[in-house]
Simulated assay, not measured.
Amino acid sequence: MPAPLDLNTPTALILIDNQSAFCQPDTLSYWGNGRSNPQYEVNIQALITAFRAALSSSSTFMEVIHIFHSSVTPGSLLHPYHPNNGIHPLDFATPASDGSEPVFWKSVNSSFIGTDLEAHLREKGIRQIIIAGLTTDHCVSTTVRMAANLGVVDRLLGEGPVNIKPDGTHVKDVLVEKGRIILVQDATATFGKGGFDAETVHAVSVASLDGEFCEAMNAEDVVKALRSAI
């Protein structure tokens, strides 16, 4: 059971690929056999609403960040020139109209490759990121893993980085003050594939991340913590 959220530390809500291509009824089969988590839309909306309300009254830095996918593969539903306009943000996950919510566009699974996301998080001093969006086993998983491997919410105490000798020992000890990466496990979803149903793919993907790369939490607990901060 993860510890409660600490909203006295700089925090970012990172929303990944909440785009219409994943929710258009006539294109769902493009991604696989059925979709997991029927509560995805409801939970994402609750998360965004609660986070925006909390950041408007918080004295601690908080920010909503949107990541969107623009495919370079012709014929992809997420290609910018596809007639379905699948790259368009879902109505309930559209960036704030006042421009206060940064938007980064990627063309691969990781939100950190080809974008300035890592530099942005470090510049803002973010120590806690809350991740939600689509899809669990692809862009969400890759982003969570890279966030952990890059240490974007961590701080080195003393001189770094970690340098390893040919025999596997460290050149010198480096202490790391860990930040927090939270995956909102029921505010993400995926599709069945490889003979496995969507809920199985989703559950295994979350289980592979939880405890190693992030802490998995439910939207209800995250929303409750956000509301208590208002």
Rank of each mutant, 00 (worst) to 15 (best):
I230M: 12
S58V: 07
C23L: 05
P161Y: 13
T9Y: 03
P4I: 11
C139R: 09
S20K: 14
L7T: 03
H88Q: 13
G168D: 08
T143F: 06
K165W: 06
P2Y: 11
K193P: 00
T94L: 10
R227L: 15
Y40C: 02
S29E: 15
V201L: 05
N109Y: 11
G158L: 10
E215L: 12
R35T: 07
L13S: 10
L156R: 06
A216M: 10
V108F: 08
Y30E: 15
T49I: 12
P95S: 06
S58G: 04
W31M: 09
T188E: 05
V223S: 06
T115K: 11
I67G: 02
T142Q: 12
T135S: 14
A53K: 09
G179E: 02
R180G: 02
A3H: 11
T188P: 05
I16S: 00
N109A: 15
V184W: 00
P4A: 11
V184H: 03
I182P: 00
N149G: 10
S111M: 02
F92I: 09
K193A: 14
I230A: 13
V206E: 01
R122F: 01
G114K: 13
L13F: 12
E101K: 04
S100K: 06
A3N: 10
L156S: 05
L117V: 12
F22G: 07
T200K: 03
